[in-house]
Simulated scan of single mutants.
Amino acid sequence: MDIDWGALGTVFVVALAAAVVLTVLFAYGIRGLSARETAREQGGSGVAAFTGSIVCFAVCAAVVAYGIYLIAA
């Protein structure tokens, strides 16, 4: 039995990068929602922060859906 260490390393690096990117995007989404609430408390609208958070959450959902597609296909 031979282990292809190069392929294993590639899978590890891609999985680590995907986890980091997904975590950062989700954190920015939460931060955007918080910034919207802060802006609304100070009399602003917070539309830009809300739009940014929706984009971050949409990208997170797309990455998760693509991962599920890769597993199921």
Results as ranks from 00 to 15, higher is better:
M1Q: 06
I3C: 01
I3L: 15
I3H: 04
D4N: 15
W5L: 14
A7E: 15
L8K: 10
L8Y: 06
G9C: 04
G9H: 05
V11M: 13
V11Y: 06
F12M: 09
V13A: 13
V13M: 06
A15F: 08
L16R: 04
L16S: 14
L16Q: 04
L16A: 13
A17S: 08
A19N: 03
V20S: 11
V24L: 15
F26N: 13
Y28F: 10
G29L: 01
I30A: 15
G32D: 00
L33P: 02
S34A: 11
S34K: 12
S34W: 06
R36C: 13
T38P: 05
T38D: 14
R40K: 15
E41S: 08
Q42Y: 11
Q42A: 15
G43W: 05
G43H: 05
S45F: 13
G46I: 10
V47E: 14
A48L: 12
A48E: 07
F50V: 00
F50E: 12
F50D: 09
T51N: 11
G52L: 13
G52P: 02
S53A: 14
S53T: 00
V55T: 04
V55L: 10
C56A: 14
C56N: 08
C56Y: 05
F57Q: 01
F57G: 02
F57R: 02
A58K: 00
A58L: 10
A58M: 04
A58Q: 00
A58T: 15
V59A: 12
V59G: 03
C60W: 01
A61S: 12
A62R: 02
A62C: 05
V63D: 01
V64T: 12
G67A: 01
I68D: 01
Y69F: 12
Y69Q: 06
L70M: 15
I71C: 06
I71M: 09
I71E: 04
A73T: 12
A73V: 11
A73K: 11
